[in-house]
Structures are given as C-alpha cells and as structure tokens.
C-alpha cells in the first residue's frame, strides 16, 4: 500500500464536503433571524411580499457577505502562519487588519462617494494592509531573525497605535458616512448589498488563487527560508506573492466589514486538525471553513439578543481570545 498522499480524489472529496456544509449553513442561516418569515410568501416572486424583501435584500446578502469575509480572513491567516512559521499569526493580531481599517477610514474621509465601497476603499485598505505587514514584519526582524513572540508583541503594539489613530481621526472629522469608528473597531456585516458581495468575492478569489498556486512553496516556507531555498523555492518572490495576496484578502474584507478578529487564527487551526497541514488542501479548505465559521458567528451576532445586534467582531473575539490563550500555552509547552 502506498503512503498517504494528496490525490485529486481527496482534494475533490474534502472540498465537496466542505462546500456542501457551507451551502447548508448558508440556507440555515438565512432562515434564522429576529423576524419570522413565511416561506411560501418569501419565495414567491409574484407576490412582492415584505418577507421576500427581508430574505433577499437583507438576510441573503448579509449571509453571503459573512461567507466571503470569513473565507478571506481564514485563508489569509493560514498563509501568514506558514510564511511567518508561526501558528499564532492572525491578520488581526498582527495589526494588518487595523492598518487596513486605518487606510480605509482615511479613504472614506478624503474621498467619500465615487465608487467608494467597491473600488477606492478596498484599494486603500489593501495598501494599508500591505504597508502594515511590511512595518510589523520589518520591525520584528532583528539581526535577520524573526522571533515568533517578538512578532506577536510588535503586532499588539502596532494594533494599539493604529487603533489610537483611528480614534483620533474619528474625533477630528465628522464621521457620518460609515457607522462610526465602532463599526471599524468591532466589525460588522450589516449593510452589504449584492454588488459589494460580488466585488469582494472577486478580490478574495483572486487572492485565494494566487496563494493556492504557491501552496507547495508555502509548505516549504513553513520549514524556514533556508529550507525552502534548498527545496528549490524562489524565497523572495514567493514571500512577496504571499504578502500581497494576504493583504488583498484582508484589505478587501476589512474595507467592508471592519476588523473581525481571530477568524484567521481559529479556522486554519481547526482545519489543520481535521485534514492535516498540506497547504494545497489547507488553503481552499480554510476559505470554505472560514465561510462556515463566520456565517455561524454572524447568525449568533444577529439573533442572540433578540431584536438588537451584537457586533460580529465581539462574537469572534469572545471565542477567539480563550482559544488564542490555549494555543499560546500549548506552543510554549511544545517549544519549551
């Protein structure tokens, strides 16, 4: 019998199952909400009922938005973890999300209307994410070495700094366009429409595609830059592609949903436990898994308090922070 290896059949089976699970989650999430829907009325287009408006104008776009945002954040997390050789890396914890949010807010303040939500703000957030990644990773690299815990600490500091800048901007400008600074800090999936969802899906699938093409390089890079070079990887180029793709993923979704933390930490970890660390499988599976996760988290955010809504970032942080602590302690034990 041959040793276990990744076959086309296994790829298809894992992704097929996850896609089915995602579809089921999306349908289930669309049925759940503070308002009870009459399904016959909602699904009959000729009636033009209020039920149909709620379902197709509010719930479905929101659930789809949650799926795309969750997928992008989880994929970015998985890629950054491999590149930085750090299972605790997460776009939010590293300050990449807050950098993206900061740039997105600046773009909104300076350029409020034209193509704002689908082009300008995402582009600014992408730039912010990329710059933040360069700053955090650059500042963490001491003497050519990138220490895991230094990286996390620098990320925390950078986060605090970018958060303060966000608050500062919020206090000097009349910030009416978005939902206030709280929206960016806590993350929210409300107020998306189909055009926003479609634009995001496009950006994030480009990012995912760029990473999947480099999946085997990421396996090599997760062993260290020198090891990757010995295995034939063009390390500089691979690193650049991964940074840009991860920034695109994070920037695009932050521009629409604000900062939603811990998705990029929790999901790749669970997926790795289920299907192993091979990035050819892990990256797309993290996208699907992240989509499922955030649709569920957002359903809780929408419904847990009945009429009023909890920011979805609060839900993910409430799950994520204890999870991070658990992972951190386990890493410390393992590496001594």
């Amino acid at each position: 019998m041959a040793i276990a290896h990744l076959t086309g059949r296994r790829l298809a089976r894992v992704h097929g199952l996850l896609a089915l699970a995602l579809a089921a989650t999306i349908v289930a999430a669309a049925t759940i909400g503070p308002v009870h829907l009459d399904w016959r009325r909602a699904l009959d287009p000729s009636l033009g009922s209020a039920d149909a408006v709620i379902l197709f104008r509010t719930r479905v776009p929101r659930v789809l938005l949650a799926a795309v945002v969750g997928g992008a954040l989880a994929t970015a997390g998985a890629a950054l973890q491999a590149l930085l050789r750090n299972p605790l890396a997460d776009p939010h914890l590293l300050g990449v999300s807050s950098g993206a949010a900061l740039a997105g807010v600046c773009a909104i303040v300076l350029q409020p209307v034209f193509l704002g939500r689908t082009v300008v703000v995402p582009a600014a957030a992408f730039g912010g994410a990329l710059a933040s990644m360069a700053i955090v990773v650059g500042a963490s690299r001491v003497g050519g070495r990138l220490d895991s815990y230094t990286l996390l600490l620098v990320g925390v500091i950078y986060n605090a700094f970018a958060g303060a800048l966000l608050m500062f901007i919020n206090s000097v400008v009349d910030f009416y366009q978005a939902h206030g600074v709280l929206f960016w800090l806590m993350g929210s999936l409300s107020g998306g429409d189909y055009s926003v969802v479609a634009a995001l899906a496009l950006y994030t699938l480009v990012g995912l595609g760029a990473l999947v093409v480099r999946a085997r390089d990421l396996d090599c890079l997760s062993l260290g830059d020198d090891r990757a070079a010995e295995l034939g990887v063009d390390v500089e180029r691979a690193r650049l592609v991964v940074f840009v793709a991860a920034s695109l993923l994070v920037g695009a979704v932050v521009s629409v949903s604000g900062m939603i933390g811990f998705v990029g930490l929790i999901v790749p970890h669970l997926v790795r436990m289920l299907i192993g660390g091979d990035h050819r499988l892990l990256l797309p599976a993290s996208y699907l898994g992240g989509a499922i996760f955030l649709v569920c988290a957002d359903t809780i955010a929408r419904t847990a308090l009945g009429g009023s809504e909890i920011p979805v970032g609060v839900v993910t942080a409430l799950c994520g922070a204890p999870f991070f602590t658990y992972l951190l302690r386990r890493e410390r034990r393992r590496t001594g």
């Binding site: 040793i3 276990a4 290896h5 973890q81 090599c220 062993l223 295995l231 034939g232 660390g277 091979d278």
Partner: peptide, 17 residues
C-alpha cells in the same frame, strides 16, 4: 518544525522540486 506534519507528508515535501 512549526506545524505538526506527519512523517509521510514531510518526506513528500522533498518531491516539491
């Protein structure tokens, strides 16, 4: 090793080139 690869997975990475 930052990630818990299995033995066969690790050896197969040698086929990357």
């Amino acid at each position: 090793i930052a990630f818990p690869y299995r033995v066969a997975e690790m050896v197969l990475i040698g086929r990357a080139p």
